[in-house]
Design a protein around this nucleic acid. Structure first.
Lengths: 344, 344
DNA sequence: TCGGCCACCGTAAACGTTTACGGAACTATG
DNA sequence: CATAGTTCCGTAAACGTTTACGGTGGCCGA
């Protein structure tokens, strides 16, 4: 005798009543409910998830899909860990288990997702590293699996998304640098088809245009989002005969490599080249200090979780006015890396 | 009509036979098996995991438990991601799904594990951030849940473990520094009860003793395993009146903060203080280059997976001679951070 | 011809839940 | 008192698998 049946026998009650009592159904006497909960605690009863899943076709699991290769996510910093932390706190309130689905760099993300879905693994999904055109969106929409994405995409199936304000960052950065007299400004973008690269570069071009300037195609650098990528960009950039006077770094970690590349060439950020990047725990240990954008990763995670739950029928009533689509604001922390101005 | 029943009806065969055919049982005609597999592929049939789990009490999931707080795991680098990658490749061969269980920094790891186990979440577990005395071991052993740990512990319930060679690193480092004339050598250790700290510090003391030296308790620094921790250690160390001439850094990321702390004080690694640490993708961008230990994280992950499977009855025959307990060797990469020698 | 063995397959019972349905006891209403 | 309504509870059928068990037919040897 196991599980709920044992509990029922111990109480001399039917298993149906026990189940109703545990699940908070209204049609059970409060006195019996108390007894059931008490006995459950005493016997250490915990419902079998397989049985429950089988019956109601739901797993109580939410998956957060990330890529393990540093190539894509730039996990040289703790960005995703912090976001995950925020997501977790929300789901914990609803007894939903959050797991990280780490797609190996060797495996195709689409295939990986297909496997996960086929297994009926999760009730909902959080996707990151969204591409400009992302087949995963349509796949999930077709299967009617609730999901939310960290990052926009041209593919739009009506799902909620949250995203960093790459366009705002580009705009602010360009305005700031132009005001200091810079004319030749370089930008970086991820080496693959991650959507944020397009947003960032396109807006940079528009912002420059508003000042009567153009974005030189030679000054758009594809960079892997890690230290090595930044180092490589520095090498390319410093070898140019008509070197730019400023650069925007779209990712947290590449600044570290870029600094290294400059110092090896005897150059100093904020004196020889102006740099605007993104803050991270690591970047605090750069010298000269990095001028860069920052945001609360944990709050972002919380908002992600709420947006997802808002689209799941069983939970939507908890979050009637969750923000389903939001560009997350960023603050600029002024450092020394873009300190100098150019003579007029 | 859904699932296996639909498949059976489509083939005009009983569901029992279909199940046997799919699961590779011997008592089914090869011709019918072929037909079944064919039809399954055609109809896109994939077995329902809940049904299967309910019946055989197994989930086909392996959980890799990590802590999300940078406090413990020092996730400023990609160490765990790389290990995870290695683990994943092994499990994929057996159609086991690997998920990362990220315990929030707010939650007690023991409680978290209890929840995971109570839910019957996984068939096996991989534990990291093992403590000197780790209650999780006994808990899992009592429940007879197969697990393997990345890291030793004084708590020993017979489970397999793999670990980095902290004692070897301490020994090698001390010998190397003493040979260069250093007498006052500092060491770092995690700020909490992670076991590796004890292994590292104790062996450092023994190695020093072999040279007729003693480890000054004032030179043992507790450090959070991240950049800020390293920075803090530097501040403390540099403020001492009888400053050490060398230091061992047990973690990958703290070197970055330590370098920063030194440079702010106008000091240079490898000239004013000798440093031996651990290599990571980030540390390649330190200047002067870091002398440190390195290992193949991916291979470590592979070995972890094999050790776990070797203890699971259903898979053990695949890995008859897996290494169940192993101290993983590390290579020393010579850099400039411990370049100088002291006058005799 | 008959008994025994083997290869293959169908039947049905489990696994642990949830929940639709109906019934019993009680209360309120006329 | 009869009736309707309410509150609570028990019964049993699902959910989709796996697998023990038994049965059927064919083959072989005596």
């Amino acid at each position: 005798m196991t599980g709920i049946r044992r509990l029922a026998q111990h109480l001399d009650i039917s298993i149906g009543t026990v189940s109703r009592a545990l699940n908070g159904r209204p049609d059970v006497n409060e006195e019996t409910r108390r007894k059931v909960l008490e006995a459950a605690a005493e016997l250490g009863y915990v419902p079998n998830q397989s049985g429950r899943s089988l019956r109601q076709g739901t797993t109580n699991i939410i998956g957060f899909m990330m890529q393990t290769g540093t190539e894509i996510t730039g996990q040289g910093d703790t960005f995703f860990m912090s976001v995950f932390d925020g997501v977790q706190t929300v789901f914990a309130r609803h007894h939903l288990d959050l797991v990280a689905l780490l797609c190996s760099s060797e495996e195709d993300p689409d295939d990986y997702l297909r496997r996960v879905v086929a297994r009926g693994f999760a009730d909902g999904l959080i996707l990151s590293a969204t591409q400009r055109h992302d087949p995963r969106f349509e796949f999930l929409a077709k299967r009617k699996i609730p999901f939310v994405t960290l990052g926009r995409s041209l593919t739009d199936v009506g799902q909620p998304w949250l995203d960093l304000d790459f366009e705002g960052m580009a705009q602010t950065s360009i305005d700031r640098l132009v005001a200091k007299g810079h004319r030749r400004i370089a930008v970086t973008r991820p080496h693959d088809d991650i959507n944020l690269g397009h947003l960032f570069v396109d807006q940079s071009a528009r912002a420059l245009a508003a000042h009567g300037l153009t974005l030189d195609p030679d000054l758009v650098f594809n960079s892997k989002p890690n230290e090595a990528g930044g180092y490589h960009v520095a090498q390319q950039l410093l070898a140019m005969k008509d070197r730019p006077t400023a650069i925007l770094l779209v990712n947290e970690t590449i600044a570290i490599g870029f600094y290294r590349g400059m110092s090896e060439a005897g150059l100093k950020p904020g004196r020889d080249i102006a740099i605007i990047g993104r803050q991270s725990p690591q970047s605090h240990f750069l010298s000269p200090s990095l001028t860069g954008f920052t945001l609360s990763r944990r709050d972002l995670g919380i908002a992600l979780a709420e947006a997802l739950l808002a689209t799941m029928p069983a939970f939507s009533h908890f979050y009637p006015d969750a923000e389903l689509r939001k560009v997350w604001p960023e603050d600029l922390v002024e450092g020394e890396s873009d300190a100098f101005s150019l003579p007029a």
